[in-house]
C-alpha cells in the first residue's frame, strides 16, 4: 500500500486525539530530525520568525497544553503529544515541565494557532563563557559580564575536551579558559546545572 501521511495532518490528529491515528513508529518517529525532513528550506524567509518554533516562559500548564509568554510578547500555546520528546537537563517526561520554566519548542502549527510539539526543551542554555573560578562542584562563569554559577551534577554532567568523547571527569576544566556549557537554567536564579561542558584540555 502506498499511503503518504502529511506530517501536519498526523500531528494534528495526534494532538486532537483522533481515533485511528497512531503516534510514533508506524509512520516514523516524531523526533525533530525526522519531522524536519519534510520542511523545505526555501519555505521560510531567512531572518524572520520561524512560525514552527516557540520561545518563552511557561505561565501555565493545563492538561497537555503549555502556555508560554515569548520575550517578544507572543503568547504561545504548545500542545504535547505522546510522541513529543522532552528535555530538561536530560531527556525526560512532560510532567517534569513546570510553571516558571524557560521553554523552547519545535513542531507544527495547527489551524487554531497551537503548536503541536515534536520537541520541547525546558530551561536549556548553551553558554559560551569564561571560567572565573572553580570550587566544590561549582564552576563560576563570566557570561556577557554577568556571573553564572554552573553546578556539576554527579552522574549527569559530562565534559568534552577538544572534541574527544564525553567523560564524567570535569576536573580538567581550567580557570581562565573559555568554555561552552550546555545545561539547564535554574529558574529565578543566575545558576545552571551542567549537562555537557566543552573545553580545551
Amino acid at each position: 500500500m502506498s499511503t503518504t501521511i502529511d506530517r501536519r495532518r498526523l500531528l494534528t490528529g495526534a494532538a486532537l486525539g483522533a481515533a485511528g491515528v497512531v503516534t510514533g513508529s508506524a509512520f516514523g518517529s516524531f523526533a525533530p530530525e525526522d519531522a524536519l525532513a519534510n520542511d523545505a528550506v526555501s519555505a521560510l524567509e531567512p531572518g524572520m520568525p520561524d512560525p514552527n518554533f516557540a520561545e518563552g516562559l511557561v505561565r501555565s500548564i493545563d492538561d497537555d497544553v503549555i502556555s508560554a509568554l515569548g520575550s517578544d510578547g507572543t503568547l504561545w500555546r504548545v500542545r504535547v503529544t505522546s510522541g513529543t520528546s522532552v528535555w530538561k537537563l536530560t531527556p525526560t517526561t512532560f510532567d517534569k515541565v513546570a510553571v516558571g520554566d524557560g521553554l523552547y519548542a519545535r513542531g507544527a502549527r495547527l489551524d487554531d494557532g497551537t503548536l503541536a510539539a515534536d520537541s520541547v526543551w525546558a530551561n536549556i542554555v548553551n553558554l559560551k563563557a569564561h571560567v572565573v573560578s572553580i570550587s566544590d562542584r561549582k564552576i563560576h562563569l563570566d557570561h556577557n559580564d554577568e556571573r553564572i554559577v554552573a553546578h556539576v551534577m554527579p552522574g549527569i554532567s559530562a565534559a568534552v575536551y577538544n572534541g574527544t568523547p564525553a567523560i564524567s571527569d570535569v576536573s580538567m576544566v581550567q580557570v581562565d579558559s573559555h568554555v561552552q556549557v550546555l545545561g539547564a537554567w535554574i529558574p529565578g536564579t543566575n545558576e545552571v546545572e551542567v549537562s555537557t561542558i566543552y573545553a580545551a584540555a
Binding site: E33, I124, Q180
Partner: peptide, 10 residues
Amino acid sequence: SRIESLSTGL
C-alpha cells in the same frame, strides 16, 4: 533546531 536537536549543542 531546524537541523539538529538543541541538546546536541555542537
